[in-house]
Design a protein around this nucleic acid. Structure first.
Length: 171
DNA sequence: ACCCCGATCGTA
DNA sequence: ACGATCGGGGTT
């Protein structure tokens, strides 16, 4: 079953945890999500929207279930899915994917490079797209909870969620 | 116009 | 530990 807008229009921590084990479809690729991070609102210093509404962060303020893709370090792209009510800027970063080929794409930059996700895929409504969407997946086993990776602010928040694909239920 | 720096990754 | 590489956002 495809995940619909009401799945994403929820508290971001809930969405980030719920996405573990879900199946991401992008063109010919399909994989189970193994790692996510939450970025929540203008009060979260690590969230791009902490600097307010800008041309780049506009998508995060928009409706839930849209993609937020941006270029990082001039070389890599990161894929996020917008969460919460329209007007409240928040998103979940997709950091890990377990492909059907048993390839584990660990890291948001590697993931986007492998699938061919780039800025042209920014601001797509993945609840109404034929080639880019997320479905229900498998039950995950134990989930790790840690601070987010690669940031210098907001390290007190335990907003990274990791699941081990070896513990995924067959489904 | 200019400067700083970043939700990364591979190599050393 | 560090360099590659470039756009966003703030400052002059």
């Amino acid at each position: 079953m495809r995940l619909t807008k009401d799945f994403f229009q929820k508290p971001t921590l809930q969405v980030a945890q719920g996405l573990l084990g879900s199946r991401l479809i992008f063109g010919a690729y399909a994989g189970l999500i193994t790692e996510t991070e939450a970025y929540i609102g203008e009060d979260d210093p690590a969230c791009h929207a902490a600097k307010g509404l800008t041309p780049r962060t506009k998508v995060m303020f928009g409706p839930a279930g849209h993609s937020y893709v941006y270029l990082i370090y001039g070389m890599y792209h990161c894929l996020n899915i917008v969460t919460e009510a329209e007007g409240f800027p928040a998103a979940v970063l997709i950091r890990g994917l377990w492909l059907e080929s048993s390839t584990h794409l660990n890291g948001p930059g590697k993931l986007c490079k492998a699938l061919g996700i780039a800025t042209e895929h920014n601001n797509i409504d993945i609840t109404h797209n034929e080639h880019f969407y997320i479905t229900e997946g498998v039950a995950v086993g134990k989930m790790d909870v840690t601070p987010r990776i690669g940031i210098k602010q907001g390290l007190d928040r335990m907003w990274r969620f990791v699941a081990d694909p070896r513990e995924f239920q067959k489904c």
